[in-house]
Design a protein around this nucleic acid. Structure first.
Lengths: 247, 247
DNA sequence: TTCGCAAAGTGTATATTTGACACAAAGCAT
DNA sequence: ATGCTTTGTGTCAAATATACACTTTGCGAA
């Protein structure tokens, strides 16, 4: 440690959320758009806010999520703390900070979270801390404000990892879904093909999904059966030492 | 969110380290001992320190580790941020804070890390922020200062999980070790027996360990062969999509 | 010197899981 | 009636996981 600066840090702390959605075809991320400053177009950013006195870290993240989307009781997981002293130092971000903050040079440490939502439950719209928001395909995102790209990457890595171990993918789907939709979800998250028959065999063997009588209607091909996620069964499996899906 | 208090948080931020060691028999954690205040015995605590201006989170954790143990280049991983507003609220901790801090009620958010060290490389001794330190068996720890028990639990869970995926266990062993030692390490971390022959077969097949000519000496039984960890081989395996050990 | 002790080291047989692969069934549109 | 598109299904071979017991080596005690 270079000891030239041993003043204790006294930063602001924020919570930033990577909100993942799935449109049955690709993974999308809910980003907020910042207005141009002096004609300079600003990068999009993760929704986030400073944490308040007396507020829990998780609570702050839930609040961000709620204020932005109106959604409650959403799957939410902490990814970690991000606090590189240089994280606010790129020119665009400096411009933006000068325009909107009282103290633009103050250090901010952020706690990153990711959450999984059913896209059908929310249509992007302006909110208290975003004039506008939009679902952006994960693939198309190559630049974000501050260190948000790093947070996004860490979040997606965690999602990829965790989906192989816990059945969190269901949070991205409607209440009832087809096995093909679930299959596609796993493929786009894991970034590789999974054999259809093997995928179904595995899923059905675990009994995590329960078939409904209902089938798709109005599709120009054989209609698919609908399924729902069986959470009880999952809890039961855990007790018996269930550990991963084997993907 | 109850909106009675919407002042933005402006806390101190600290880094606390769970330092794991392995004495060839059990997992131990390096804790610091706090002096009794007014005759009240204080719980032990994780080593940690406030983060400085201009200092990276990881750097702060490395510094804590270095100042406590003199060890450098140690395996270190962030576990997450912990910041429950009530985390400093138990009576013993309040007593202690009043005795040692200028501002004992100020909120502190801490970033938890865990690190893995070879116990042979360090003998507990006083340091700049601990009058004394000691290796305590993980099993015996049932109370710690602040929310350090929570950080410890999260850290150990992460260790248990990660050891099945990456060969980080080697950080806990001497440079050269026997397969029995490695086997025992996996057993105590995972908390269950692993069949000796199957364990060896798996490890040897991966080629992650390289046998030396040297064998144990002075033991009252068949002397074991020594091995070293082969990091190159590990990196090679990763490229080929190696993913987990299968434990 | 021999005997006993303690841990090291080794192979096989069985059950389970994975991975590869192709064609019939259903519904709609033309 | 035909064609198009997606659903839904079974088998076989290969790889992996699990269960299990005896010989070897070196030391120390008798």
């Amino acid at each position: 440690m270079d000891s030239k600066n041993r003043h204790e840090l006294n930063p602001r702390v924020s919570a930033d959320c990577v909100i993942f959605g799935f449109d049955l075809n690709q993974i999308k991320v809910l980003l907020i758009e910042r207005e141009a400053i002096n004609g300079v177009e600003q990068s999009m950013a993760l929704p986030g806010d400073l944490i308040f006195e007396g507020e829990n870290l998780d609570t702050a993240a839930s609040r961000v999520l709620y204020e932005l989307t109106g959604l409650d009781e959403i799957y939410l997981e902490q990814v970690g703390a991000f606090g590189d002293p240089n994280r606010l130092n790129n020119p665009k971000d400096q411009l933006w900070l000068k325009a909107v903050r009282q103290n633009p040079t103050e250090r901010v440490i952020t706690i990153g979270f990711f959450s999984l939502v059913n896209m059908n439950n929310y249509e992007p719209q302006p909110s208290s801390f975003a004039k506008s928001a939009a679902w952006i395909p994960l693939e198309d995102i190559d630049e974000l404000a501050f260190d948000h790209m790093e947070i996004l990457k860490a979040s997606f890595a965690k999602l990829q990892h965790k989906i192989r171990i816990q059945p969190i993918g269901f949070n991205l789907l409607p209440h009832k879904f087809t096995l093909s939709q679930l299959h596609k979800l796993y493929e786009v998250i894991l970034g590789r093909e999974l054999d259809k028959r093997n995928f179904r065999r595995k899923m059905l063997k675990l009994n995590l999904v329960q078939s409904l009588e209902e089938r798709q209607a109005g599709v120009p091909h054989k209609p698919s059966q609908y399924f729902v996620f069986n959470e009880e069964k999952y809890n039961e499996l855990i007790l018996h030492g269930f550990d991963n899906f084997g993907f």
